[in-house]
């Protein structure tokens, strides 16, 4: 990897300033994607600005209706947090099956969603739960955040500070993990709040997406059987050596049903 200058600011303001002063800067969160990318020579920033020194980005807080997770909270921290586990076990268990234990000790929620890998787990949770992403500049709804493969609504130099998750009545995440990488071959997050249901799918397409037909069916009848016969068009789904588009499409239906069953058992937030 090419050498770079390294800075570790202790405030958000200093980090933003360092980025704007840099010719070709990059923020470093957990480093579980950007460091491998730099080692491959696919990125060669001149300045690396490490966000690990900024205390305010680490906090996790919870009220009855909202769980707020600081952007630099690691997956392991979220998985073990009582503030997350009690009200929203589906989110804690999602964090506990990202990658592997060592990756979970470094990787962060902010880094994951800023990267928007099409097979990452967190984007499904944010989209299904209707989360709000806060940055140093503004608030962005999850519906407006994930744009396309590896693309988000973030502007150059913008830093995610936290993610707010409304607590649903019931939720669950089901993932069919790639056996080698542990990324989601397909992952489906189902969340019900009152009569509103959201179904978000990761891994299957170029970017996380919602399945409107499933949501409408589940709003009438929140049961696995309500999903019988609903299929997702496979034209835009991913196909690679791991699985065909048809196989991924099939998995969406299977995992959505399982997620509904687990959500009913979980009864998150009730």
């Amino acid at each position: 990897m090419d050498d770079f200058s390294y800075q570790k600011p202790s405030t958000l303001g200093d980090a933003v300033e360092a980025f704007s002063a840099a010719d070709d800067g990059v923020y470093l969160a957990g480093g579980q994607t950007i460091l491998p990318v730099m080692k491959l020579g696919l990125a060669a920033p001149e300045e690396v600005i490490d966000l690990n020194g900024i205390e305010e980005l680490q906090a996790i807080t919870a009220s009855d209706s909202v769980i707020s997770i600081g952007a630099m909270a690691t997956h392991a921290t979220v998985a073990a947090s009582e503030d997350v586990k009690q009200p929203l076990p589906a989110l804690a268990s999602l964090a506990g099956i990202i990658g592997d234990p060592q990756v979970r000790n470094r990787g962060t929620i902010g880094g994951s969603i800023a990267n928007n890998d099409p097979a990452a787990d967190y984007p499904a949770a944010l989209l299904a739960l209707g989360a709000t992403i806060t940055t140093d500049k503004r608030q962005i709804a999850a519906d407006d955040f994930f744009l396309e493969i590896f693309e988000t609504a973030l502007e150059d130099g913008e830093i995610i500070t936290k993610v707010d998750f409304p607590v649903p009545d019931a939720a669950a995440y089901m993932k069919f993990a790639n056996p080698a990488s542990r990324f989601a071959l397909v992952g489906v997050f189902v969340a019900r709040t009152g009569n509103s249901v959201r179904v978000a799918v990761t891994g299957a397409g170029p970017c996380v997406f919602r399945v409107g037909d499933m949501e409408a069916a589940l709003e009438k009848d929140f049961s696995a059987a309500a999903l019988d016969g609903i299929t997702v068009p496979t034209d835009d789904l991913n196909a690679d050596i791991h699985a065909s588009a048809e196989y991924r499409g099939h998995l969406i239906g299977v995992l959505a049903k399982r997620a509904v069953e687990v959500a009913k058992e979980n009864g998150d937030g009730q």
Partner: peptide, 12 residues
């Protein structure tokens, strides 16, 4: 905490 030391900078 266990980490993969090939995916962390020494300076960190």
């Amino acid at each position: 905490q266990p980490v993969k030391s090939c995916t962390m900078l020494a300076v960190q």
